[in-house]
Design a protein around this nucleic acid. Structure first.
Lengths: 215, 215
DNA sequence: CTTACAGTTATACTTTCGTATAACAAGGAA
DNA sequence: TTCCTTGTTATACGAAAGTATAACTGTAAG
């Protein structure tokens, strides 16, 4: 039974999100998970191992949710891409908590190999997924779709998505995050040089309601 | 004389970049700055105050460098915008160290008011700067340039810049960061619906050399 | 019934943390 | 000269850190 393991991971994420890496001490995490600190050793070997495992756990949540968004719904290339983009700038993926967690962990990628491995793999996965969404779309539109072109588009789109996700999640309150899907799709159409509304027409609810950002 | 103060801030950034927030202990920072830990109290009151001051110090470096890039050179709107964008995806602003530092601090923005203040202010400044670069460009091209339009463009451009800066600084090694200026300008032209090469023509060295990413 | 093992707690140990305090050096003001 | 302020070190203290160890469950196997 690894329900305990998962509950320790969630407790770790809770502590990191709320108190930062400093505040995610073994005792505090254990208390949050309603166990004693000794269990950390039992399940993860060390506290550091638990924290990096929590990073992997978080990334898994993020990517699987985006994956699923692209899968469901119609199979038209432009619709799949639109769903994927929107899913990344909408709850539950767009959440201040998740953005804060991601940032905290990303800060350790450069100097700690465990984090670097997790990051590199998930980034590669994201880029590949984007390319496989872009490629058929270019083909349908009878545009050049060589790998290099697809990669460049994927890099730019990934940057746009990351950036908007960050902006939205940080929620500096300078604008309404309900605008993000439209801004994202419109910018993506520009980056890919698509006819206007190619992506935009697939927005779920063109209304101005419901800005469900989990805090 | 606040040379001491600055050297403590730099030492703090060094420690945070290398060991993360956990590793930036009062003793370690003091040792790096060749002083004893007591001085931290003298200059900043507490260790936490020193660390958040270091965040402000870092943000100051980043924004002032981008500011200056936009100032220098010709005054044509498209040239100013191009320079600004390129400066943000090129060394010295594009550096793995700075990205890692930024991420580490950003992770604390949501829950710690000191960080939130610094962040909000710098973000607003960045958005305003982008809008003042976009507005005259739209006017020159006889395009609609109302505030809302400018703001939406600024949000998308800021996301693109942030995202590419992040991708480049994280340096996952999946592509050459020398490509970033071209990718950035091309994507920006798309987002703003500019005629091709409006921005791209202002790239400094169209060669394929020199990828000076400070590590 | 006993054995053995995984899950879990309680506790104790060492290190490191942040910071308070007292003292010392240097320099300008009185 | 004396005095006060500022910059700085040395040191000490309590709290909290990570983790090792031993003991106490329960449950499934023999």
């Amino acid at each position: 039974m690894d329900a305990r393991r998962r509950s320790l991971l969630e407790a770790t994420l809770d502590c990191v999100a709320e108190y930062g890496m400093n505040g995610a001490s073994a005792r505090r995490v254990a208390e949050r998970a309603d166990v004693t600190a000794g269990l950390i050793r039992h399940y993860f070997g060390s506290k550091d191992a638990m924290v990096s495992a929590a990073y992997g756990y978080l990334i898994g949540q993020l990517t699987s949710e985006a994956d699923e968004a692209a899968e469901q719904g119609g199979a038209a290339p432009e619709q799949r891409l639109a769903r994927f983009i929107v899913a990344n700038v909408t709850a539950p993926n767009l959440s201040p908590r998740k953005v804060a967690l991601w940032a905290t962990f990303i800060g350790r990628v450069r100097t700690e190999p465990d984090y670097a491995d997790i990051h590199r793999e998930s980034y590669r996965e994201f880029l590949v997924l984007l390319e496989t969404l872009i490629h058929p779309l270019l083909l349908v539109l009878k545009r050049p779709a060589d790998p290099v072109t697809c990669q460049h588009y994927a890099i730019a789109l990934n940057a746009l998505i990351d950036g908007l996700w960050l902006e939205g999640g940080l929620g500096h309150g300078l604008y309404d995050t309900a605008l993000l899907p439209r801004i994202a799709l419109s910018a993506a159409e520009g980056i890919l040089a698509l006819p206007a509304n190619t992506l935009m027409q697939h927005i779920d609810a063109p209304s101005m309601s419901s800005q469900h950002v989990t805090r």
